[in-house]
Design a protein around this nucleic acid. Structure first.
Length: 281
DNA sequence: TACTCTTATCCCGCATCTTA
DNA sequence: TAAGATGCGGGATAAGAGTA
């Protein structure tokens, strides 16, 4: 990092909303962070330049005016461009209300990218947060107020203010929630469509529009990600892992896994063991 | 816009083979 | 011999066209 302003505040998870750190920096070409998991919610916003953000096996190419959300315990990686390294600001926060706020804004790990044309406003808000860095009640309230204001600007995103898009996001979010809760139960795409009371071809349309992948791809990637975690952190048999991830047949699981990782589940486990991953039952 | 219908493609699961 | 991989056919899904 060539230049950076960073500030860290005290932790208190019982609060509705709490700014934990913030800052901005101009990065060097190809400056990267991760792959790493974080304990907080973090939003980065690009003031200038370009870079990539990776989460859940997906790579997003981002530029000025775009930002990305990192949720707690999500493995992420980001890197600035070689020719036009990005200058970005970030805020790290926590609190009981965050899941509800992010839901309203339309941000999640499945939909982590946003666009905002109020670059100057966001910059001055973070600048103001840095100015009010003192550890007293007044500054604390001021920082929390600025954080509310920051989120309110994101909520102004024209995409989210459109009623039709709101309902489309609602379908996507509910579908993702359904997958998270039922992926282990051998669900099919038509089950998700039935749950949402929409036609499965319409569900496909929405997934393709917002996530650039089919519902089937999303479901398979979710199951296989869970499976790869179980392979590297447990000694469960391939059949048990297959059943635990919603595959009725270990053969189907094995084929799907090989297609995804270009290696069989057993080979993946051997590689992980060789690299020193701790195993448990 | 929010579906339904049609059809080609692809995925799943059974049977069988391979490997440790 | 059991666990995991592979081949193949049938059914589910994706995608485009049509419609109310």
């Amino acid at each position: 990092m060539e230049q950076a302003q960073v500030l860290t505040f005290l932790n208190n998870k019982d609060r509705d909303l709490l700014l934990q750190f913030c800052g901005y920096s101009t990065t060097e070409p190809l400056h990267s962070f991760g792959p790493v998991v974080r304990p907080h919610y973090i939003i980065h916003f690009i003031l200038n330049g370009k870079g990539i953000f990776q989460i859940r096996e997906k790579t997003y190419h981002l530029e000025t005016g775009q930002g990305f959300l990192i949720e707690p315990d999500e493995l992420t990686f980001y890197q600035s461009d070689a020719q036009e390294p990005w200058e970005y600001l970030w805020i790290g926060f926590n609190g009981k209300m965050i899941p509800e706020f992010l839901k309203q804004i339309g941000l999640s790990s499945a939909h982590p990218i946003f666009h905002c044309d109020k670059k100057k406003e966001l910059y001055w808000l973070v600048n103001d947060m840095l100015v009010h860095s003192k550890s007293n009640f007044s500054s604390d309230l001021r920082r929390t107020g600025l954080l509310y204001e920051f989120l309110s600007i994101l909520a102004l995103n024209p995409l989210e203010s459109d009623q039709q898009v709101d309902s489309e996001y609602m379908y996507i979010n509910q579908a993702i929630e359904y997958i998270k809760n039922n992926y282990w139960d051998g669900i099919h795409i038509y089950d998700i469509a039935k749950y949402l009371c929409i036609d499965r071809s319409y569900l496909y349309l929405l997934f393709h529009k917002y996530l650039k992948q089919s519902p089937q791809d999303y479901l398979a990637t979710f199951r296989l990600t869970k499976a790869s975690e179980l392979l590297s952190t447990t000694t469960l048999s391939i059949e048990s892992i297959s059943n635990s991830c919603g595959y009725g047949d270990p053969a189907t699981f094995s084929k799907a896994f090989k297609r995804w990782k270009s290696m069989s589940p057993s080979k993946y486990r051997k590689q992980k063991r060789a690299s020193g991953t701790v195993l448990s039952n």
